[in-house]
Design a protein around this nucleic acid. Structure first.
Lengths: 192, 192
DNA sequence: AATTATACTTAACAAATGATAAAAAATAAA
DNA sequence: TTTATTTTTTATCATTTGTTAAGTATAATT
């Protein structure tokens, strides 16, 4: 049940059994069916999720168009952070792309953990650091690489995502239209 | 001396005087002349900086070309995070674009603070959260906006940067060549 | 001041991506 | 299975941005 979460956290900050025991009562389980929402527009994000199974996408409504800013790989933390932090209505929408098994923690309980255990506070910091570094790399990719290179790298790094996530979301994630992605895939097919 | 730093931190996490007193001995001051390096390629980043005066840019060498991934606004934290976290040689280079007054903290001392004071650990987490949110917005801008819009928004948000940072760095930061930025600025000049 | 180096601009052409519209394919619903 | 809906692909043309090369302006050095 908790195996993947434990492994993920332990890799960042080794915790003793007391620290884990304190956390378990706060960890709830949530199953989402495909297309279910984890956070809807205007919601105040109360939970942070760890994706045990399935894929979530984070998107915005931008002039009636859905802009996918993130597709969560397996075993990562996901929430609408601006809303979660400041308890304001969320402009980010989080939806299940496939059926999902999530572990979720309520913000209030996470605060309790954070304030009681310096090591849980540290986990929070380390998770954010890693997410920040990932995001910086993505900016680097936007600056230096063409959409084709970004696509190929994504294929290499997250092949599983391509098996489960519609191409239109992937296109948006890569910063191009689905038509451009289609063209790009065609040109790759005839490459070698 | 510490005013801006104190304001910045207090806005995220209010600290008592004991927590500040514990930190002061660790805070060193560093002045950089224009073009001085804060982190050179291959260095192991030992310090995190708070920019009291002046602008730092974070860039990579990408096929002999310098790719500016970040230009630090005033009163922000800057370091080569991947290197700083894992104490590995840095591929990120950090250089002073103008003369700079920095407050810096050594990694070892920061760790001491983090491990001694849950509230300093919390500061670390909150700083990372804010930086992460900023970076996510930047990705959103890359996906949805044209270079012209990104340029205009940057003008609005950081007008001071344009007074002190060469356009070639700004172009790279926006994800375009300096020639494209030039053309773009020209077309804006003749707009109204 | 003259010289050199650096930064910025301009121009013409090439390449990448967007916009629009439509067809084809895949999936879901009846 | 048939029908309807959604997703993906194709194609054409427009726009944005890159590339190359040159010129101009600005700043640094002698």
């Amino acid at each position: 049940m908790y195996t993947d979460l434990v492994n993920f956290v332990e890799q960042l900050v080794p915790l003793n059994s007391g620290e884990w025991e304190a956390a378990y009562p706060f960890i709830e389980s949530l199953e989402l069916k495909r297309n279910d929402f984890f956070v809807e527009e205007g919601d105040i994000a109360q939970y942070i999720a760890f994706t045990r199974k399935g894929y979530l996408r984070v998107f915005y409504n931008h002039d009636g168009e859905e802009i996918t800013r993130d597709i969560s790989p397996l075993n990562t933390f996901v929430t609408a952070l601006p809303s979660f932090i400041s308890q304001t209505p969320s402009f980010e929408i989080i939806q299940a792309v496939t059926d999902c098994d999530l572990l979720i923690i309520h913000r209030d309980n996470l605060e309790l953990l954070y304030n009681e255990y310096i090591n849980w506070q540290k986990v929070g910091r380390r998770v954010m650091e890693e997410m920040f570094v990932d995001t910086q790399y993505r900016i680097y990719a936007f600056i230096t690489q063409t959409a084709e290179t970004r696509y190929k790298e994504m294929m290499k790094r997250y092949p599983d995502i391509f098996l489960h996530v519609p191409l239109q979301y992937i296109a948006s994630f890569l910063g191009i239209t689905s038509q451009s992605l289609s063209r790009l895939r065609k040109s790759i097919r005839f490459e070698e």
